[in-house]
Simulated assay, not measured.
Amino acid sequence: MADALRGHNLVWLAGQEELARRYPQLALVLPYPFALGAAPITTDGTQRGGLVLHWPGSRSPQLRPRERDAIGDVCRRLGSLLRDAADSGHPVKPGAGPCLVPPPGTRSSVSSEARFAVDFAERLPGGCCGLDGDGRITFATTTAMELLGAGPSDLLGARPWEALPWLNEPVAQDRYRAAVLSRGPTSFTALRPPDRWLSFRLYPNASGISVRIVPAPGAGAPPVRPPSPSPPLPPPRAGQPCSTT
């Protein structure tokens, strides 16, 4: 963002290779597939802020002309709004935290379809929970709460690593960041004290992350052995019918 403001132009990072070449320290912190654009918001020669846009790594590395034009148009409109607000004596100031806007088409009211979705999730083996765009738990099935050892008052509205201190460890946070930035599925295992290993599978999209939780064998757990195969049957003799049971 600082480079975009200094150069008065759009900075486009098409992927991890370009990020490593231009910003190696940032690439070490965020080793995930994603694309990033940073553009200055300037009106009448006054810098009023910046716009940062993020795409998953699955997109085309090239920024299309219509995308570039759209980014420029948005920056001009934001600049005009910020200028008018300042001129009216009500300048826009930074908030205490990020303002999350739901994706277009998201329903705000609970419907019968939502109830059916909850019933569907409750019938599945294992546990399910949902995270919003800020990483806060918005939903958890009964099985998920049993596996995590926490109730609704502990989980809902909190981030997993805040509600469950044993999830506040580097591997879990790395896999969460990878899901957010790359928009691709990720997974990890974690030990719920004292001796219960759980497997977490994260499925992200623009609105948040769906998390699947199932028991998993971990360090010190006895390996799961496949059943011993039955001894092979002798091959049938010529002219003898072959049968199976």
Results as ranks from 00 to 15, higher is better:
Leu181Met: 15
Arg83Glu: 06
Ile71Tyr: 04
Gly57Thr: 02
Pro24Phe: 08
His90Arg: 12
Leu100Thr: 15
Ala206Leu: 03
Asp84Ala: 06
Leu28Val: 10
Pro241Phe: 03
Val180Gln: 11
Thr245Arg: 14
Leu30His: 06
Leu233Phe: 10
Ala150Thr: 03
Ala219Glu: 01
His8Ser: 14
Arg66Asp: 04
Ser187Ile: 06
Ala144Tyr: 02
Asn9His: 12
Ala158Pro: 01
Pro193His: 00
Arg48Gln: 05
Asp69Ile: 02
Arg159Cys: 10
Val92Met: 06
Lys93Thr: 13
Gln47Ser: 14
Thr244Ile: 11
Gly133Ser: 15
Leu156Cys: 07
Thr106Asn: 02
Gly130Glu: 13
Pro235Ile: 10
Ala178Glu: 12
Asp73Gly: 06
Ala121Trp: 01
Val101Met: 13
Glu169Ala: 09
Lys93His: 14
Ala172Pro: 01
Phe116Ser: 12
Ala85Leu: 13
Ala38Leu: 10
Pro194Thr: 00
Ser182Leu: 00
Asp119Ala: 07
Asp73Trp: 09
Ala140Gln: 08
Leu181Asn: 05
Pro94Gly: 04
Leu148His: 09
Leu81Ile: 12
Leu233Ser: 14
His90Ala: 09
Ala14Asp: 14
Asp3Glu: 15
Pro232Ile: 00
Asp174Pro: 15
Gln25Asn: 14
His8Pro: 02
Ser88Ile: 09
Gln25Phe: 05
Ser228Phe: 12
Arg196Leu: 08
Gly45Ser: 00
Ala140Ser: 09
Arg48Thr: 02
Gly97Phe: 04
Gln47Arg: 04
Pro193Trp: 02
Pro65Asp: 13
Gly49Ser: 00
Leu51Asp: 02
Gln173Cys: 13
Ala85Ser: 15
Ala38Ile: 14
Leu13Asp: 06
Gly97Cys: 07
Ser108Asp: 09
Gly89Ser: 04
Pro241Tyr: 01
Ser109Ile: 05
Ala39Tyr: 14
Gly218Pro: 06
Thr189Asn: 13
Leu181Val: 02
Ser88Pro: 12
Lys93Met: 11
Asp87Gln: 10
Gly50Val: 10
Gly126Thr: 11
Thr46Ser: 07
Ala86Tyr: 11
Leu36Arg: 10
Phe120Ala: 08
Pro193Cys: 06
Val214Cys: 00
Pro61Tyr: 02
Phe188Ile: 01
Arg48Pro: 11
Arg76Trp: 13
Ser80Asn: 07
Ala178Cys: 11
Pro217Gly: 15
Ser112Arg: 12
Gly220Met: 10
Gly105Glu: 04
Ala238Asn: 04
Gly15His: 09
Ser111Leu: 05
Ile41Met: 01
Cys75Thr: 05
Arg177Met: 15
Gln25Trp: 10
Phe116Leu: 12
Pro223Ile: 13
Leu10Lys: 06
Ser109Leu: 15
Lys93Asp: 04
Gly15Met: 02
Gly105Cys: 09
Arg159Leu: 03
Leu63Ile: 02
Arg115Leu: 10
Ala221Gly: 10
Ser243Arg: 01
Pro165Phe: 01
Pro61Gln: 03
Ser88Met: 06
Val11Ser: 13
Pro232Ala: 01
Val92Thr: 09
Ala27Phe: 08
Leu156Val: 11
Ser108Thr: 07
Ala172Gln: 03
Val118Gly: 03
Ala150Gln: 07
Ala178Gln: 11
Leu19Ala: 05
Leu164Glu: 00
Pro222Lys: 03
Ser228Pro: 04
Glu113Gly: 05
Gly49Asn: 00
Gly105Lys: 03
Leu28Glu: 11
Arg192Trp: 07
